[in-house]
């Protein structure tokens, strides 16, 4: 696969922040509602129904539009010269410096290291019966997957289609959906870890979980 886990770790250690640039959706007069260095919260609630912190207001044709943040983090790069002025569409008005948490780093590493089986189309997905039975008995067990194994069943229009695994053999490391859920096309279903990397991946994940802050 040519992926060096140490390099990945090093990369995330040196790039613990991600900067998201906030652009204007259209032209208008903007007025900031946050200041540089201010901490902002992203959407919250069980269904992310509560909007995040109000960043700025943009007004066009007497239409006052409130723009909220989609990420947690700190506000940087506010441009005071734009305050109260007309801006073009796509103008970067500020950035949110988001600190990656442990789970986000693990997710990013796993996406690069594991063989990800993605949903071929939007449908209802089930784990194959033997995998489901094994996970039902021992949720933490590592199930060996060989190329050609039917691991997921796609149920669409009253027709069940078995989906086979085609990559190198490995163990089932992560299940991204709940059996019976409707999954959108392209979303990850399963993550399979090649056998030779398993131990190393587990160690790295464990290490991130326990002492990422000290690393």
């Amino acid at each position: 696969m040519g992926i060096n886990l140490n390099d990945l770790l090093r990369h995330y250690r040196s790039h613990i922040f991600e900067d998201y640039q906030v652009e204007t959706p259209h032209t208008g007069v903007i007025s900031y509602k946050v200041q540089d260095g201010q901490t902002v919260e992203g959407p919250s609630g069980e269904w992310l129904q509560r909007p995040g912190t109000l960043l700025y207001i943009i007004e066009r044709e007497k239409n006052v539009k409130k723009m909220y943040t989609s990420w947690n983090g700190q506000v940087t790069g506010i441009r005071p010269d734009l305050e109260g002025h007309f801006v073009e569409a796509g103008e970067v008005v500020l950035s949110i410096r988001h600190r990656l948490d442990k789970n986000e780093i693990i997710d990013r590493i796993l996406t690069q290291v594991l063989n990800i089986l993605r949903a071929p189309q939007q449908a209802r997905y089930f784990l194959s019966s033997d995998i489901s039975a094994k996970l039902g008995k021992h949720p933490e067990c590592r199930i060996a997957i060989e190329p050609g194994d039917e691991i997921v069943i796609m149920s669409l229009m009253k027709r069940d289609t078995a989906i086979s695994y085609k990559e190198a053999s490995g163990v089932l490391y992560k299940v991204y959906f709940r059996s019976g859920d409707i999954v959108e096309q392209g979303s990850p279903l399963l993550g399979i870890c090649p056998s030779d990397r398993l131990q190393y991946v587990q160690e790295v994940v464990q290490r991130i979980r326990t002492d990422w802050e000290n690393m």
């Binding site: 259209h26 066009r60 044709e61 007497k62 239409n63 539009k65």
Partner: peptide
């Protein structure tokens, strides 16, 4: 009878343009 635009509540989901 008002000269202004409004935003559709589904604008972020479906990319609706502002409406006059």
């Amino acid at each position: 009878n008002e000269d202004r635009t409004v935003t559709c509540p589904n604008a972020s989901k479906y990319g609706c343009m502002d409406l006059w």
